[in-house]
Protein backbone atom coordinates (compact mmCIF):
# COMPACT_ATOMS: atom_id res chain seq x y z
CA UNK A 1 0.00 0.00 0.00
CA UNK A 2 2.80 2.41 0.88
CA UNK A 3 4.42 1.57 -2.41
CA UNK A 4 1.22 2.38 -4.24
CA UNK A 5 0.99 5.74 -2.48
CA UNK A 6 4.47 6.66 -3.62
CA UNK A 7 3.56 6.33 -7.24
CA UNK A 8 2.72 9.08 -9.63
CA UNK A 9 0.26 6.89 -11.54
CA UNK A 10 -1.79 6.41 -8.41
CA UNK A 11 -2.29 10.15 -7.96
CA UNK A 12 -3.08 10.54 -11.62
CA UNK A 13 -5.72 7.83 -11.42
CA UNK A 14 -7.21 9.53 -8.33
CA UNK A 15 -7.36 12.90 -10.06
CA UNK A 16 -8.94 11.26 -13.07
CA UNK A 17 -11.56 9.46 -10.97
CA UNK A 18 -12.50 12.58 -9.05
CA UNK A 19 -12.71 14.55 -12.27
CA UNK A 20 -14.88 11.95 -14.00
CA UNK A 21 -17.30 11.82 -11.04
CA UNK A 22 -17.45 15.61 -10.78
CA UNK A 23 -18.10 16.11 -14.48
CA UNK A 24 -20.60 13.26 -14.46
CA UNK A 25 -22.53 15.00 -11.70
CA UNK A 26 -22.43 18.33 -13.51
CA UNK A 27 -23.50 16.88 -16.82
CA UNK A 28 -24.98 13.37 -16.94
CA UNK A 29 -24.28 13.23 -20.67
CA UNK A 30 -20.63 12.73 -19.79
CA UNK A 31 -21.10 9.30 -18.28
CA UNK A 32 -23.19 7.88 -21.12
CA UNK A 33 -21.89 4.97 -23.07
CA UNK A 34 -21.80 7.02 -26.25
CA UNK A 35 -19.53 9.62 -24.67
CA UNK A 36 -17.23 7.03 -23.12
CA UNK A 37 -16.79 5.40 -26.51
CA UNK A 38 -16.09 8.83 -27.90
CA UNK A 39 -13.43 9.47 -25.25
CA UNK A 40 -11.72 6.20 -26.16
CA UNK A 41 -11.76 7.11 -29.81
CA UNK A 42 -10.41 10.58 -29.12
CA UNK A 43 -7.52 9.26 -27.08
CA UNK A 44 -6.42 6.74 -29.71
CA UNK A 45 -4.33 8.92 -32.01
CA UNK A 46 -2.82 10.97 -29.22
CA UNK A 47 -2.20 7.79 -27.25
CA UNK A 48 -0.37 6.07 -30.11
CA UNK A 49 1.87 9.10 -30.50
CA UNK A 50 2.33 9.23 -26.73
CA UNK A 51 3.60 5.65 -26.57
CA UNK A 52 6.35 6.59 -29.00
CA UNK A 53 7.17 9.77 -27.12
CA UNK A 54 7.29 7.78 -23.88
CA UNK A 55 9.98 5.52 -25.29
CA UNK A 56 12.05 8.43 -26.54
CA UNK A 57 11.74 10.42 -23.32
CA UNK A 58 12.62 7.37 -21.22
CA UNK A 59 15.80 6.93 -23.24
CA UNK A 60 16.81 10.48 -22.41
CA UNK A 61 16.07 11.87 -25.88
CA UNK A 62 13.25 13.87 -27.34
CA UNK A 63 11.44 13.58 -30.66
CA UNK A 64 9.63 16.54 -32.19
CA UNK A 65 9.19 14.98 -35.61
CA UNK A 66 6.60 12.30 -34.84
CA UNK A 67 3.62 14.43 -35.89
CA UNK A 68 5.31 15.31 -39.17
CA UNK A 69 6.07 11.63 -39.70
CA UNK A 70 2.42 10.78 -38.98
CA UNK A 71 1.15 13.37 -41.47
CA UNK A 72 3.69 12.29 -44.07
CA UNK A 73 2.91 8.59 -43.80
CA UNK A 74 -0.85 8.91 -43.86
CA UNK A 75 -0.96 11.41 -46.70
CA UNK A 76 1.52 9.55 -48.90
CA UNK A 77 -0.24 6.24 -48.19
CA UNK A 78 -3.66 7.66 -49.06
CA UNK A 79 -2.45 9.29 -52.27
CA UNK A 80 -0.55 6.21 -53.32
CA UNK A 81 -3.45 3.83 -52.75
CA UNK A 82 -5.82 6.17 -54.57
CA UNK A 83 -3.42 6.47 -57.48
CA UNK A 84 -3.39 2.71 -58.03
CA UNK A 85 -7.10 2.55 -57.25
CA UNK A 86 -6.49 0.07 -54.45
CA UNK A 87 -9.60 -1.80 -53.32
CA UNK A 88 -8.07 -4.32 -50.88
CA UNK A 89 -7.71 -4.57 -47.13
CA UNK A 90 -6.94 -1.63 -44.86
CA UNK A 91 -4.05 -3.65 -43.43
CA UNK A 92 -2.09 -3.00 -46.59
CA UNK A 93 -2.56 0.70 -45.89
CA UNK A 94 -1.36 0.21 -42.33
CA UNK A 95 1.62 -1.77 -43.50
CA UNK A 96 2.53 0.93 -45.99
CA UNK A 97 2.08 3.78 -43.52
CA UNK A 98 4.12 2.04 -40.85
CA UNK A 99 6.92 1.25 -43.30
CA UNK A 100 7.06 4.88 -44.39
CA UNK A 101 7.06 5.92 -40.74
CA UNK A 102 9.79 3.41 -39.99
CA UNK A 103 11.94 4.73 -42.82
CA UNK A 104 11.58 8.32 -41.63
CA UNK A 105 12.29 7.25 -38.06
CA UNK A 106 15.44 5.48 -39.18
CA UNK A 107 16.46 8.66 -40.96
CA UNK A 108 16.35 10.31 -37.52
CA UNK A 109 18.28 7.44 -35.98
CA UNK A 110 21.02 7.65 -38.59
CA UNK A 111 21.35 11.41 -38.15
CA UNK A 112 21.52 11.07 -34.38
CA UNK A 113 24.05 8.26 -34.48
CA UNK A 114 26.27 9.32 -37.36
CA UNK A 115 26.30 13.06 -36.78
CA UNK A 116 26.17 12.61 -32.98
CA UNK A 117 23.85 15.57 -32.66
CA UNK A 118 21.39 16.23 -29.84
CA UNK A 119 18.09 14.50 -30.51
CA UNK A 120 16.13 17.73 -30.10
CA UNK A 121 18.05 19.45 -32.89
CA UNK A 122 17.90 16.47 -35.24
CA UNK A 123 14.17 15.90 -34.88
CA UNK A 124 13.38 19.61 -34.95
CA UNK A 125 15.19 19.77 -38.25
CA UNK A 126 13.82 16.56 -39.68
CA UNK A 127 10.26 17.54 -38.73
CA UNK A 128 10.65 20.59 -40.92
CA UNK A 129 12.27 18.57 -43.70
CA UNK A 130 9.52 15.93 -43.71
CA UNK A 131 6.75 18.49 -43.68
CA UNK A 132 8.34 20.68 -46.32
CA UNK A 133 9.01 17.70 -48.55
CA UNK A 134 5.42 16.52 -48.14
CA UNK A 135 3.88 19.87 -49.07
CA UNK A 136 6.33 20.64 -51.87
CA UNK A 137 6.53 17.31 -53.64
CA UNK A 138 3.51 15.22 -52.66
CA UNK A 139 0.75 17.76 -52.52
CA UNK A 140 -1.23 20.24 -50.50
CA UNK A 141 -4.80 19.32 -51.41
CA UNK A 142 -7.02 17.54 -48.90
CA UNK A 143 -8.01 14.03 -50.00
CA UNK A 144 -11.70 13.74 -49.24
CA UNK A 145 -12.38 10.38 -50.81
CA UNK A 146 -10.24 7.84 -49.06
CA UNK A 147 -9.63 4.31 -50.40
CA UNK A 148 -12.53 1.97 -49.71
CA UNK A 149 -10.61 -0.14 -47.20
CA UNK A 150 -9.89 2.86 -45.01
CA UNK A 151 -13.50 3.99 -45.05
CA UNK A 152 -14.65 0.51 -44.12
CA UNK A 153 -12.15 0.51 -41.26
CA UNK A 154 -13.41 3.82 -39.94
CA UNK A 155 -16.97 2.47 -39.82
CA UNK A 156 -16.01 -0.70 -38.04
CA UNK A 157 -17.06 -0.71 -34.39
CA UNK A 158 -17.26 -3.05 -31.44
CA UNK A 159 -20.05 -3.43 -28.86
CA UNK A 160 -22.53 -1.91 -31.27
CA UNK A 161 -25.82 -0.79 -29.87
CA UNK A 162 -28.80 1.03 -31.29
CA UNK A 163 -30.19 3.72 -29.06
CA UNK A 164 -33.85 4.61 -28.63
CA UNK A 165 -33.23 7.61 -30.83
CA UNK A 166 -32.33 5.27 -33.67
CA UNK A 167 -28.67 6.29 -33.50
CA UNK A 168 -26.10 3.47 -33.57
CA UNK A 169 -23.15 3.75 -31.27
CA UNK A 170 -20.07 1.58 -30.82
CA UNK A 171 -16.45 1.57 -29.84
CA UNK A 172 -14.24 2.45 -32.76
CA UNK A 173 -12.17 -0.51 -33.92
CA UNK A 174 -9.04 1.62 -33.98
CA UNK A 175 -9.13 1.53 -30.20
CA UNK A 176 -8.16 -2.15 -30.45
CA UNK A 177 -5.00 -1.11 -32.28
CA UNK A 178 -4.26 1.29 -29.45
CA UNK A 179 -4.76 -1.46 -26.85
CA UNK A 180 -2.45 -3.78 -28.79
CA UNK A 181 0.19 -1.06 -28.98
CA UNK A 182 -0.14 -0.42 -25.22
CA UNK A 183 0.41 -4.10 -24.43
CA UNK A 184 3.31 -4.36 -26.88
CA UNK A 185 5.14 -1.28 -25.59
CA UNK A 186 4.54 -2.25 -21.97
CA UNK A 187 5.94 -5.70 -22.68
CA UNK A 188 8.99 -4.38 -24.49
CA UNK A 189 9.79 -1.88 -21.76
CA UNK A 190 9.27 -4.27 -18.87
CA UNK A 191 10.24 -7.71 -20.09
CA UNK A 192 12.87 -7.34 -22.77
CA UNK A 193 16.50 -6.47 -22.32
CA UNK A 194 16.06 -3.97 -25.12
CA UNK A 195 13.44 -2.22 -23.02
CA UNK A 196 15.63 -2.23 -19.94
CA UNK A 197 18.40 -0.89 -22.15
CA UNK A 198 16.16 2.09 -22.93
CA UNK A 199 15.81 2.82 -19.22
CA UNK A 200 19.54 2.26 -18.71
CA UNK A 201 20.39 4.63 -21.57
CA UNK A 202 18.11 7.28 -20.09
CA UNK A 203 19.54 6.82 -16.61
CA UNK A 204 23.25 6.86 -17.39
CA UNK A 205 24.43 6.47 -20.96
CA UNK A 206 28.06 5.91 -20.08
CA UNK A 207 27.26 3.21 -17.55
CA UNK A 208 24.88 1.60 -20.05
CA UNK A 209 27.71 1.25 -22.47
CA UNK A 210 30.03 -0.10 -19.77
CA UNK A 211 27.51 -2.69 -18.70
CA UNK A 212 27.38 -4.01 -22.25
CA UNK A 213 24.46 -2.45 -24.09
CA UNK A 214 24.90 -1.68 -27.76
CA UNK A 215 23.65 1.89 -27.57
CA UNK A 216 23.60 2.33 -31.32
CA UNK A 217 21.26 -0.61 -31.72
CA UNK A 218 19.05 0.63 -28.89
CA UNK A 219 18.78 4.07 -30.48
CA UNK A 220 17.98 2.65 -33.90
CA UNK A 221 15.18 0.70 -32.33
CA UNK A 222 13.86 3.72 -30.44
CA UNK A 223 13.66 6.14 -33.35
CA UNK A 224 12.61 3.48 -35.85
CA UNK A 225 9.83 2.32 -33.56
CA UNK A 226 8.63 5.86 -32.90
CA UNK A 227 8.46 6.38 -36.66
CA UNK A 228 6.50 3.20 -37.11
CA UNK A 229 4.02 4.06 -34.36
CA UNK A 230 3.64 7.55 -35.79
CA UNK A 231 2.84 6.09 -39.21
CA UNK A 232 0.11 3.95 -37.67
CA UNK A 233 -1.19 6.88 -35.64
CA UNK A 234 -1.29 9.06 -38.75
CA UNK A 235 -3.32 6.52 -40.67
CA UNK A 236 -5.75 6.04 -37.78
CA UNK A 237 -6.15 9.81 -37.74
CA UNK A 238 -6.96 9.89 -41.46
CA UNK A 239 -9.49 7.06 -41.06
CA UNK A 240 -11.13 8.78 -38.07
CA UNK A 241 -11.39 12.10 -39.88
CA UNK A 242 -12.43 10.34 -43.13
CA UNK A 243 -9.99 12.51 -45.04
CA UNK A 244 -6.26 12.90 -45.50
CA UNK A 245 -5.17 16.45 -44.81
CA UNK A 246 -1.44 17.10 -45.13
CA UNK A 247 -1.78 20.10 -42.80
CA UNK A 248 -3.16 17.98 -39.96
CA UNK A 249 -1.33 16.69 -36.89
CA UNK A 250 1.61 19.08 -37.04
CA UNK A 251 1.19 21.39 -34.07
CA UNK A 252 0.08 18.67 -31.68
CA UNK A 253 3.64 17.66 -30.72
CA UNK A 254 3.85 19.68 -27.55
CA UNK A 255 0.52 18.57 -26.14
CA UNK A 256 1.49 14.92 -26.69
CA UNK A 257 4.84 15.43 -24.97
CA UNK A 258 3.04 17.29 -22.20
CA UNK A 259 0.61 14.40 -21.75
CA UNK A 260 3.50 11.96 -21.37
CA UNK A 261 5.24 14.22 -18.86
CA UNK A 262 1.92 14.55 -17.05
CA UNK A 263 2.00 10.76 -16.90
CA UNK A 264 5.18 10.87 -14.87
CA UNK A 265 7.85 10.46 -17.52
CA UNK A 266 10.97 12.44 -16.81
CA UNK A 267 11.90 14.97 -19.46
CA UNK A 268 15.55 14.25 -18.68
CA UNK A 269 15.20 10.52 -19.16
CA UNK A 270 15.21 7.33 -17.16
CA UNK A 271 11.70 7.43 -15.77
CA UNK A 272 8.34 6.76 -17.34
CA UNK A 273 5.67 4.09 -17.50
CA UNK A 274 3.12 3.06 -20.09
CA UNK A 275 0.32 3.25 -17.53
CA UNK A 276 1.31 6.81 -16.68
CA UNK A 277 1.44 7.90 -20.31
CA UNK A 278 -1.96 6.32 -21.05
CA UNK A 279 -3.52 7.98 -17.99
CA UNK A 280 -1.91 11.29 -18.91
CA UNK A 281 -3.39 11.19 -22.38
CA UNK A 282 -6.78 10.15 -21.08
CA UNK A 283 -6.80 12.95 -18.51
CA UNK A 284 -6.17 15.55 -21.18
CA UNK A 285 -8.81 14.06 -23.45
CA UNK A 286 -11.33 14.03 -20.59
CA UNK A 287 -10.62 17.66 -19.76
CA UNK A 288 -11.03 18.75 -23.35
CA UNK A 289 -14.17 16.68 -23.81
CA UNK A 290 -15.80 17.82 -20.59
CA UNK A 291 -15.16 21.47 -21.26
CA UNK A 292 -17.06 21.07 -24.49
CA UNK A 293 -19.89 19.26 -22.73
CA UNK A 294 -20.03 21.94 -20.06
CA UNK A 295 -20.27 24.58 -22.75
CA UNK A 296 -16.98 26.29 -22.00
CA UNK A 297 -15.32 28.00 -25.00
CA UNK A 298 -12.72 25.75 -26.58
CA UNK A 299 -9.91 28.27 -26.10
CA UNK A 300 -10.15 27.49 -22.43
CA UNK A 301 -9.11 23.93 -23.23
CA UNK A 302 -5.55 25.12 -23.72
CA UNK A 303 -5.56 27.02 -20.46
CA UNK A 304 -7.01 24.07 -18.56
CA UNK A 305 -4.62 21.55 -20.12
CA UNK A 306 -1.60 23.69 -19.30
CA UNK A 307 -2.82 24.29 -15.76
CA UNK A 308 -3.33 20.59 -15.11
CA UNK A 309 0.16 19.77 -16.41
CA UNK A 310 1.88 22.35 -14.22
CA UNK A 311 -0.18 21.38 -11.17
CA UNK A 312 0.47 17.68 -11.62
CA UNK A 313 4.21 18.01 -12.07
CA UNK A 314 4.33 20.39 -9.11
CA UNK A 315 2.51 17.89 -6.90
CA UNK A 316 5.03 15.20 -7.80
CA UNK A 317 7.98 17.50 -7.17
CA UNK A 318 6.66 18.62 -3.80
CA UNK A 319 5.76 15.12 -2.69
CA UNK A 320 9.17 13.83 -3.66
CA UNK A 321 11.44 16.44 -2.15
CA UNK A 322 9.26 17.98 0.47
CA UNK A 323 7.75 21.43 0.28
CA UNK A 324 10.97 23.09 1.38
CA UNK A 325 12.91 21.98 -1.66
CA UNK A 326 10.16 22.83 -4.04
CA UNK A 327 10.09 26.28 -2.49
CA UNK A 328 13.85 26.63 -2.51
CA UNK A 329 14.37 25.52 -6.05
CA UNK A 330 13.23 28.76 -7.62
CA UNK A 331 15.54 30.86 -5.55
Amino acid sequence: MRKLLGQHEFYLAMILTVLVIAIGLANPAFLTRANLFDLCKSSTVMGLFALGVLIVLTSGGIDISFAAIGAFSMYVTSRLLLAVDFQGSVWVAFLLASLIGLALGLFNAVSINVLRLPTLIVTLGSASVFRGFLLAFIGTSIVNRLPAGMIAFSRRTLFEQTLATGETIGLSFSFVLYLLAIVAVAFVLRYTLLGRGIYALGGNAEAAERVGFNLRRVQFFIYGFVGLLSGVAGLVHACTMRNANPFDLVGTELSVIAAVVLGGASITGGRGTVLGAVLGVFLIVVINNSLILLGIPSYWQKVATGGVIIASVAITAIRKDGVRHAAASWR
Binding site: L193, R196, Y199, A200, G202, G203, N204, E206, A207, A208, R210, V211, G212, F213, S266, G269, G270, R271
Partner: peptide, 18 residues
Protein backbone atom coordinates in the same frame (compact mmCIF):
# COMPACT_ATOMS: atom_id res chain seq x y z
CA UNK B 1 28.50 3.46 -12.78
CA UNK B 2 25.10 2.65 -11.35
CA UNK B 3 21.71 3.48 -12.79
CA UNK B 4 19.99 5.78 -10.33
CA UNK B 5 16.63 5.23 -12.02
CA UNK B 6 16.69 1.45 -11.74
CA UNK B 7 16.22 -0.75 -8.71
CA UNK B 8 19.05 -2.30 -6.71
CA UNK B 9 18.15 -5.73 -8.05
CA UNK B 10 18.30 -4.65 -11.65
CA UNK B 11 21.55 -2.76 -11.24
CA UNK B 12 23.13 -5.91 -9.92
CA UNK B 13 21.71 -8.33 -12.45
CA UNK B 14 21.76 -6.32 -15.66
CA UNK B 15 25.22 -7.29 -16.78
CA UNK B 16 24.69 -10.99 -16.16
CA UNK B 17 21.49 -10.82 -18.16
CA UNK B 18 23.22 -9.13 -21.07
Amino acid sequence: SLFANLTVAENLALNTQI
